[in-house]
Nucleic acid binder design. Structure first.
Lengths: 234, 234
DNA sequence: CTCGGATAGTCTCGAAGGGACTATTCTGGA
DNA sequence: TCCAGAATAGTCCCTTCGAGACTATCCGAG
């Protein structure tokens, strides 16, 4: 009531920063750089945001700020507190949200019948380039890690399953765009005149149904019966 | 300068709405529902946003609003203009952004060493449930489409490649989470004590490098040499 | 000695999210 | 036939975010 304190609420982004602080102390600038290089891939946030979060953490008692100075330039080093570690563990216990995907190139493909076939092909080509670029950055970083030149090698056991997801995701985008290109190339100039390819639709449906029937339980998953991103010829 | 009009700029969301209007006229409510059911999967936006967009389109001359009334309740039906169709085609010509992914469950996995093994397993299980739920909704909708009961069957040719991406994405999340679960089950109670599994890391690296070498050109993509989401036993 | 890139931030504005709130119309079952 | 609840058709508010402009110092290579 009245106009009491109101320290802004903690968000997922706050806990992402808090997690980094649990690894070691950082300055805000280092946090921002680290975030851009790694966490951005699963939790993208604007740089400007990242400068606010540590302050919130301090306000909540989850981190401490130490003002230092390099020459005449001041900087702030943040360190996690014991309460911060408890809060982080607590956050890890609560269920997280499922993936949320924004995919403008796919959105444009969805409206392809209001443009030209070449427009659609350009979107798919851009998607492939995106995937390639992501993978290149990834390979460089991953090679460093495997050759023991990466930071925090002791965290590798914990981080590699998540990394696997990213590689597979980039690979999916690439394979899908390549496959979709072959489909779109078969369209007429004006995509609104394209004939529905029933094989594709039934194939999609079969894939989806098959998966929906797969037991939700556990254990090893068999390799897919249907080769991904290949359309069987008629 | 001074304090002139300033009709707010058009965003990707504006064009998503404009694309729907290119299919047929809608009321704002219908647009919001349609968006939630379909476009949300590649371009998720809050409902409240969707009520603003058509007004912007009108302000830019890309759509027209017709006030109607059902009984005593007023409603507004939006129709695309010729200029709107031109703007849409123009937008389709410009390259779209690559995918952007938010994945909180994976983020929590990334910090698994500050929680317990069971916390990590719970995140993965939640990811599987999410994927299953998405697929179930998808299957229901897709079955309707294939059995000719879906709206806009004439757009099927254009929309099914994009749908394929979604099925594969959900499938990826599911397979990955199942695979990752088997890895995490091998961890000790305290994940910070987990041993790095070099096989996994080198496997990831090999996958990534192999892909990075793949020609960025075109044409059919061969089936992957390595079965997705299976770790070869030692 | 200097110049460009890395370090270390602040600030602003508009876009987006999330939900509370209102009100009328339609539909299926008692 | 009547009523409850779902669907229709929005408005409003507050907070968070994103994108980028802006400032300033430090450090290393040539």
């Amino acid at each position: 009531m009245s106009r009491v304190d109101r320290t802004p609420a903690l968000t997922t982004t706050s806990f992402a920063i808090l997690g980094l602080l649990a690894i070691r102390p950082w300055t805000t600038y280092e946090l921002a750089v680290q975030m851009e290089r790694t966490l951005n891939r699963v939790w993208p946030r604007a740089r400007s945001r990242l400068y606010e979060e540590p302050k919130k953490l301090v306000a909540h008692g989850l981190a401490e700020a130490a003002r230092e100075t390099v020459g005449r330039r001041p900087r702030t080093v943040y360190t996690i507190t014991e309460e911060g570690r408890r809060a982080l563990a607590e956050w890890l216990r609560t269920p997280g949200a499922g993936p949320s995907l924004e995919f403008e190139q796919n959105l444009k493909l969805f409206f392809a019948d209001f443009g030209t076939r070449d427009d659609a092909l350009a979107q798919l080509e851009a998607a492939r380039e995106w995937a390639t670029a992501q993978l290149e950055v990834f390979v460089t970083a991953a090679r460093d890690y495997v050759e023991d030149r990466g930071p925090f090698p002791q965290r590798l056991a914990v981080t590699s399953p998540g990394a696997r997801f990213l590689v597979d995701f980039y690979d999916l985008v690439d394979r899908w765009a390549a496959w979709a290109s072959t489909i779109v190339q078969g369209w007429p100039e004006d995509p609104s005149q394209a004939e529905p390819t029933l094989e594709v639709d039934q194939y999609i449906l079969r894939l989806a149904e098959e998966r929906a029937r797969r037991p939700g339980g556990d254990a090893a998953v068999p390799a897919p019966d249907l080769a991904p991103h290949q359309v069987s010829g008629p």
